[in-house]
């Protein structure tokens, strides 16, 4: 390979990753700043972390957000796995095109539209059937499930289409019932996709401001809604501290998940090699 070209590529990558990480690092560094003026360095201090832990409003919102994110992730994985399985394994059926469309469209749909349309649906439903009573945690959770299940479906689908179907077919040929094949063979194969889908659904719900703002009600302000109202008034060191904690937790989670998946893959490769060696 041409040397000039690889220098060019390496400098592009260094620049790109710096672009991605410098803002995050600056958030973390200035969360330890003594001064209230976020960007003027006045010495090391951890007082903003203490202030954050005393802030009832933020803690309460964080608790609401975590609860929504947890329920959302569980439902999104269940529904998204079904949807991904349908797309990857069940072939043609009536209305498949519409189904594919409804799975992929939420990935790109602007959030303001999703939020507004769901709100109008909830208002109309309350009029017609009396449910949901008002808006709050339930409606936010339903809205989040709808868009995060699409992400899970795409992850599961791509995982399933990269795996050989013959193992499942063999089990069916040997007389196993479809449900049993799904639980005993398909699910373990796609387990890594389910883990990353669950984590993705969890963080997306934790992160969503726009949709939650539309479908929330009094007393159900999520963490991003509280952060947004604070940030609109200007920078605040407490938010920096909050950001640092979130970055720390997320990177630990992503690195742990990455490591586990890496190990899983190695074990599988070894099993495959053993199987090939045993058959020889």
């Amino acid at each position: 390979m041409n040397n000039n070209r690889s220098y060019f590529l390496i400098s592009c990558m260094v620049f790109g990753f710096a672009f991605l990480y410098v803002p995050i690092l600056s958030l973390i560094i200035f969360s330890f700043n003594k001064s209230k003026l976020v960007t003027v360095w006045a010495g090391f201090s951890t007082k903003w972390y203490g202030a954050l832990l005393q802030n009832e409003q933020i803690l309460q919102a964080a608790w609401i957000s975590l609860r929504i994110a947890f329920v959302n992730a569980c439902f999104a994985v269940a529904l998204g796995t079904l949807a991904g399985f349908v797309l990857a394994r069940l072939g043609r059926f009536r209305g498949r095109t519409l189904f594919t469309g409804m799975v992929t469209a939420p990935l790109v749909m602007p959030e303001v539209i999703t939020g507004l349309s769901l709100l109008l649906l909830f208002v109309a439903m309350q009029d017609l059937i009396g449910w949901p009573q008002g808006r709050g945690i339930t409606t936010i959770t339903i809205a989040h499930i709808t868009f995060s299940m699409a992400y899970v479906a795409v992850i599961v689908q791509s995982r399933l289409s990269s795996v050989d179907e013959s193992v499942e077919e063999a089990a069916l040929d040997l007389g196993a019932r479809p449900a049993k094949v799904f639980f005993v063979i398909t699910l373990p194969i796609i387990a890594p996709a389910l883990v990353s889908g669950w984590l993705l659904a969890f963080t997306m719900s934790l992160d969503d401001l726009v949709i939650a703002s539309f479908v929330s009600g009094p007393g159900s302000s999520t963490l991003p809604m509280v952060v947004f109202s604070k940030v609109r008034l200007g920078v605040s060191p407490e938010i920096n501290a909050l950001a640092s904690i979130i970055v720390l937790l997320v990177s630990m989670g992503v690195i742990a998940a990455g490591y586990l998946m890496h190990r899983q893959q190695k074990i599988r490769q070894r099993d495959i090699q053993f199987a090939i060696a045993a058959n020889k």
Binding site: T39, V40, V227, A243, V250
Partner: peptide, 28 residues
């Protein structure tokens, strides 16, 4: 790949917020 995905998993709102501290008149 992990390095590209990582920022995508941290809060979108807070990453946008980080730019306020960088860009404002008495910013970095």
């Amino acid at each position: 790949l992990l390095l590209v995905i990582l920022p995508f998993w941290t809060s979108f709102l807070l990453r946008v917020y980080a730019w306020i501290g960088i860009l404002k008149n008495n910013g970095i």
